[in-house]
Computed example of a mutant assay.
Amino acid sequence: MLKRILLSLCCLFSGVGLANQRAPEAWQWLEQGAVLIDVRTLEEFQQGHLEGATLIPYQQIVAGAQQLGLKEDQAVVVYCRSGRRSGIAQQLLEQAGFSKVHNGGGLQEMQLAQP
């Protein structure tokens, strides 16, 4: 947690937003086997989503992750439209005991950073 706070402060003071780093890191997690979850609405998901993503609206994220059979130590990447809802989903999962959750940010951000 302290490391994340320090990284955020460094990015803030250097003029580089954390958003510029979260999507590339998300792709690293995915390359290592993380589960990809889109936390937007069904309508947004139907309009376009990342290949391999599972839809679980952020309000249902904990129950949905449990229904998927995800283990608390399974690596998970969440994304939405802007990163706000995925941030909430990350917090909810972490509060529920999931220890490896990464907020990939927004769909467009993820698409632009895709290797």
Rank of each mutant, 00 (worst) to 15 (best):
A113N: 04
Y79P: 00
R40S: 15
A53G: 07
G87Y: 09
R40T: 15
F45M: 05
Q95N: 14
A63D: 15
Q111K: 15
L18T: 14
P115N: 08
K100T: 01
K71E: 13
E94T: 12
A113G: 04
I5C: 01
I56A: 03
E25Y: 04
Q21S: 12
Q114Y: 03
K71T: 07
R84M: 14
E43A: 15
K71R: 14
S99C: 08
Q28H: 08
V76Q: 00
L107H: 01
G106C: 14
R40Q: 14
Q60I: 02
L7N: 08
D73M: 03
G17V: 03
E94K: 12
L9V: 11
C10R: 11
T54D: 03
G106K: 08
N20R: 11
R22L: 09
L2A: 10
P24K: 11
L7Y: 06
S86Y: 06
H49G: 04
L92F: 03
L93T: 06
L55S: 04
L30W: 07
Q90V: 08
E94F: 06
A75H: 09
A19P: 00
V76P: 00
I61P: 00
D38T: 10
G87L: 10
G48A: 05
T41S: 15
E31A: 15
Q46P: 00
A19Y: 05
Q47N: 14
E31D: 14
F13Q: 05
F45Q: 07
D38Q: 11
Q21N: 14
L68R: 11
L112D: 13
E72C: 06
G104R: 01
P57S: 08
A34R: 00
G83L: 10
L55H: 05
Q90M: 14
L93G: 03
Q91L: 11
H102E: 05
G52D: 04
Y79H: 11
V35N: 03
V62N: 06
L9A: 07
L36S: 01
C11R: 12
M110Y: 08
S8R: 13
G64D: 07
C11W: 02
L50W: 10
F98D: 00
G69N: 09
V78M: 09
E109V: 01
W27G: 05
D73A: 12
V77S: 07
L42R: 10
I37P: 00
K100W: 03
L6T: 06
G106D: 09
D73L: 06
Q91N: 05
E31P: 00
A63E: 15
V39E: 03
A26R: 04
W27A: 07
H102A: 06
M1C: 02
V39H: 05
S99H: 02
M1V: 05
Q67Y: 02
Q114H: 07
I37E: 01
L7C: 03
L42I: 02
G48Y: 04
H102C: 08
A63K: 15
L6M: 11
L2F: 09
Q46N: 13
E31L: 13
L9K: 08
R22K: 05
L36R: 01
G69A: 11
C10A: 11
R81A: 15
Q21L: 15
S82M: 06
K100C: 11
E94Q: 15
V35H: 12
M110S: 10
G105R: 03
Q60T: 10
S82T: 13
Q90S: 13
Q67K: 14
V78K: 02
P115Q: 10
L2Y: 07
Q74C: 09
V76E: 00
G105P: 04
G52F: 04
A53I: 06
E25K: 13
A26H: 10
